[in-house]
Each structure stands twice: as structure tokens, then as C-alpha cells.
């Protein structure tokens, strides 16, 4: 399953709730303000790193770049563009947006 998170982890609880309710083996894609979760020093850095043992984490680079956060991405988080976003949706049997 693909989980899409578009909220800053320091403003809302979408990221934390996603990590709590996502099944092992799931894929997480961070977009829009959600990309702040993918950056070093974010409030969920520790939790996200722990989750990466069981889950694949991706961040949308156009959103990282728009926010000037492209050079501070946590190691192990892969970056995709919109075409990669489309591929992730196609590869997973279902998708949930944590609005």
C-alpha cells in the first residue's frame, strides 16, 4: 500500500498517524509540506528512521527543491519526480492520502 503524506510533521499529526497505522512493507511518499518530514532534524526524524527498517520512504523532489530543503534529506530516503509519483501509485495495489 502507498501512503501519501502532505503535511508538515511539526504542524499536524498526519505523519505520526501514518507511521502508527501503516502496515509493515508499506511505502510512504512525502509530498507538499510533507517533505519537511524527510529532512534532517525534523520532529519525526527518529520515528521515520525506525520505520524505514520495514518501509520504503520516498520524497517528491520538486517539493523539496521549492522549499530549499533538497540538501538536507535524511539518508536512505529516495527522491522521485511526478513521473516517479505515478509509478509508485501504479506499483502499489492501493493508495491512501493522509490529509
Amino acid at each position: 500500500m502507498l501512503h501519501i503524506v502532505n503535511k508538515s510533521p511539526s504542524e499536524r499529526n498526519a505523519m505520526s498517524s501514518c507511521l502508527r497505522m501503516a502496515k509493515k512493507g508499506s511505502t510512504i511518499l512525502l509530498i507538499e509540506d510533507g517533505v519537511y518530514a524527510a529532512t534532517k532534524g525534523s520532529v519525526v526524524e527518529k520515528d521515520l528512521k525506525a520505520a524505514m527498517a520495514d518501509m520504503q520512504v520516498y520524497a517528491l523532489w520538486p517539493d523539496l527543491e521549492a522549499r530549499g530543503m533538497q540538501d538536507t534529506v535524511i539518508d536512505g530516503i529516495k527522491q522521485v519526480d511526478y513521473a516517479g509519483f505515478v509509478d509508485l501509485v501504479a506499483e502499489n495495489k492501493n493508495v491512501q492520502s493522509w490529509l
Partner: peptide, 19 residues
């Protein structure tokens, strides 16, 4: 909100990939 922009970029990319 950025939602409409992201949705559009997603749709455009999907069409470009033949979906």
C-alpha cells in the same frame, strides 16, 4: 492550497507515461 497543483502535475505526468 497546493493540492490542485500537485493533482495537475500528477495527471500530466500520468498522461505522458501513457496512462
Amino acid at each position: 492550497h497546493q493540492a490542485a497543483d500537485t493533482a495537475y502535475q500528477f495527471a500530466k505526468a500520468a498522461i505522458e507515461k501513457g496512462h
